[in-house]
Design a binder for these strands. Structure first.
Lengths: 258, 258
DNA sequence: CGGGCAATTGAAATACATCAAGGCGTGTGG
DNA sequence: CCACACGCCTTGATGTATTTCAATTGCCCG
């Protein structure tokens, strides 16, 4: 029943997410904030020690890169939480323009606001192959009012989320391409660090340049040029889907962080 | 004690906000959402009919245009709610750059997130002369957990707030100056309509062009040019601090709304 | 081997910023 | 009452960051 040694589906692109084995969320390797764990702790009756017990019947699903995980319609009742891989919360405009509102890393959910109301027009799409669990909005809302700790965790996460959102707004409104790029790298590094996903100053970096472009409000072409400059200036180094920060101080200076 | 006929302080610029008479919040003329009213209703014991009774000891204060209403530090405990006039929630960067996150109209408070956590670096400044009331964060939090209706009102408002914030992000990231301008005007008109502050298609428009610039991520100079075009194209008309939408359909088309 | 996605690079176009000058209205001080 | 300064808006000339267009390469995978 448990297909633990599941080959990566490579390029088969299954149309529907595949239900996989139900392992402990510890594989998330999320050290800091972990939504699943928060739910798990909230539901724990007091004896057990396992952080995430699929408490609300959320089954882990797999979906491969470049596919849409879900739409955040009024109709949608499920709240996906990323277990493994990277995803993007995206809003698409007529004319092919897109804006990425945030990158979702293991332990993240879409948005805390989504527990309280719909987010029309937004979609979650998988950047890498992604493993995620879907909770039911209604269940989470119920839990929210039953468990004060969970409530506080969620509110705190919401405030942090809003802070990041505001920083993005400022980036797009008032900062140059260089600043935006530097800051994107730095905030990603910070978030990965909290999750124990940085080795020294290098990280897995699965983003395609069009993802970066959509997150920073730039063009893929321009992103390519700026990243080229950064590498030539020995600020960063990118090799086969891995980014390492070569000169942290200089990168922070470019990002306007003092 | 009640100085009802208080002359507008013109240009005296008092250093501290002046406490004024405590009138009913009905002068806000806010029809749709009204934070004060929500608090008032939440506190009503069931008999009275007056919407806002200064329930938590919030005294109306006046402050004149171009002054800072408050900083949203960790230290700050007060939550201002606008009664009359326009204010701006602003974030200032080193180098004189500024980004306006939202315009605060009568009935608005700073941000729902602010009830749950600090918003470092943000300030509220008065665009026009402003009358406002300051609640204590702690009081509001307490009320939040006592009154389910108030809680729901706040959460709903938070979700709406987030929606506007996302739209701003998309504007700054992926839309042209024309689109941004058109959309700013349209959303302001929409919000004012809900408050009963539109006559037909015209509204008071106290914004200086640098406010518009800071809200749209543009330069005052460029704002001037675009507004000039809009007027020459008979989309809008601006006369002594009043804006009227001449061609709504065309304006919506420019804003990319179909 | 071929096809599609991704990245790079250069040349040209453009949207917007910067710089600079002038006008207009309004409060201020002589 | 006038002169003046100041904030605000406008307008034109110039500069620049970023986009758009186009061609090329590499790579992965079938």
């Amino acid at each position: 029943m448990n297909k633990l040694v599941e080959k990566k589906p490579a390029h088969t692109h299954p149309a529907r997410p595949t239900a996989t084995s139900e392992r402990s969320c510890t594989v998330c390797a999320v050290e800091e904030f972990n939504f699943c764990a928060a739910v798990g702790v909230a539901l724990k009756t007091g004896t057990g020690d396992v952080p995430c017990l699929l408490p609300l019947g959320a089954v882990a699903q797999k979906i491969s890169a470049r596919r849409i995980i879900c739409h955040l319609n009024e109709r949608s009742e499920s709240v996906p939480v990323i277990c493994q891989g990277w995803a993007a919360l995206t809003i698409a405009l007529p004319g092919g323009r897109r804006q990425i509102l945030s990158f979702l890393l293991p332990g993240d959910t879409v948005s805390m606001a989504y527990l309280f109301g719909p987010m029309p027009g937004r979609i979650v799409d998988a950047i890498t192959d992604v493993t995620f669990r879907s909770f039911k909005r209604y269940d989470l809302q119920t839990l929210l009012f039953k468990d004060a700790d969970f409530f506080e965790t969620v509110m705190k996460a919401w405030v942090e989320e809003e802070e990041r959102s505001v920083q993005l707004t400022v980036d797009l409104g008032r900062r140059t391409a260089d600043e935006r790029l530097a800051r994107l790298i730095l905030t990603l590094a910070g978030r990965l660090t909290k999750r124990g996903m940085m080795r020294d100053l290098s990280m897995e970096f699965p983003l395609r340049q069009h993802h970066i472009a959509d997150a920073t409000g730039l063009t893929p072409v321009h992103v390519s040029k700026v990243i080229g400059e950064f590498q030539r200036a020995d600020l960063i180094e990118i090799n086969n889907r891995s980014l390492t920060i070569v000169d942290l101080v200089a990168l922070r200076r470019v990002g306007g962080i003092y």
